[in-house]
């Protein structure tokens, strides 16, 4: 994996399909040159005499070199693949959400609860991203939905090509929801578009209220912030108003839902928003 953070050459992302139990290694097929040293020897036998006198021009070139304008976006490859994913989702009328947060914010619990509560109304399938283990995927699988686990190894976020591979395995049906649970990390996932409709940032009240200010990239790139674990507020010194202010400072348009995935408090608004997103998607599909 080339663009992952600090990963070593030997690190490979691994994909586990909880339906079939199949585990496969994700090969880096983006065609990056990892300096494998492909030294082909193009010597040929016939005897041209390569004697034209190019000393002068070569010397000139080696002194000054040739400047080539590239204007290349460093993340261009990922962005291109993300757009392909976006088209894939649109063609199937699938609502894809990229769930991002720090570890331990309650993403998986929120997902379990959401899937179970909306079972009759929405078809939700899940792509799980974690560095290691298939624990989260097992928890999600227990709710009865389809789930594919991507283990990024030492990589600390999902990338568009990993998602594309995961989607092939997940094979979500038309008019459904795909929840992408990104690796718990508030830095890198902000930089890597996966092709989702939007990012949903989950922040729990057991974290600091100034987190949106500390990680502005993430909270700016998210359309929604879910403030989780509000049932614990009476036991904490968490300043709710301050947190909302911080989020709005970084991203004035951010939608905020205050919920508790364990007690169920406030979840209705999040569910309504979800249903609204899918129905607006459907109507777009119909008029098109």
């Amino acid at each position: 994996m080339c663009v992952t953070c600090g990963c070593s050459d030997g690190a490979k992302a691994v994909l586990t399909n909880l339906e079939t139990g199949l585990v496969s290694e994700m090969i880096d097929d983006q065609g990056h040159s990892h300096s494998h040293g492909h030294d082909h020897n193009h010597d040929h036998d016939h005897n041209h005499s390569h004697n034209h006198d190019h000393d002068v021009s070569h010397t000139h070139a080696s002194l000054h070199g040739t400047t080539v304008s590239l204007e290349a976006d460093i993340l261009e490859k990922n962005n291109r693949l993300a757009e392909r994913n976006r088209g894939w989702f649109e063609g199937r009328n699938i609502l894809a959400l990229n769930l991002v947060s720090s570890p331990g914010s309650g993403k998986t619990t929120l997902l379990e609860k959401t899937i179970t509560d909306l079972k009759q109304e929405l078809l939700i399938n899940v792509i799980e991203g974690d560095q290691e283990t298939i624990n989260d995927a097992k928890r999600i699988r227990a709710t009865g939905c389809k789930v594919v686990q991507i283990n990024t190894g030492t990589g600390c976020h999902l990338e568009a090509d990993m998602l594309a591979r995961g989607l092939k395995d997940l094979n979500p049906p038309l008019d459904s929801v795909v929840m992408i649970e990104n690796v718990g990390n508030l830095v890198c996932p902000a930089l890597f578009d996966l092709g989702e409709k939007c990012k949903v940032a989950i922040l729990s009240v057991t974290e600091g209220e100034d987190k949106p200010l500390k990680y502005p990239h993430m909270f700016r790139s998210a359309e929604v912030m879910i403030l989780n674990k509000i049932d614990l507020l009476p036991y904490l010194s968490f300043d709710l108003e301050e947190c909302i202010k911080a989020a709005k400072t970084v991203n004035p348009k951010i939608k905020i839902f205050q919920v508790s995935a364990t007690s169920g408090e406030g979840l209705t608004q999040w569910y309504d928003w979800l249903k609204e997103q899918l129905s607006s998607k459907k109507s777009i599909g119909k008029t098109a």
Binding site: C2, T4, C5, G6, H32, C156, H157
Partner: peptide
């Protein structure tokens, strides 16, 4: 993530 980013730069 700069390590990964730099690898991408070298690769491009």
């Amino acid at each position: 993530h700069e390590l990964g980013i730099t690898r991408n730069i070298v690769s491009i």
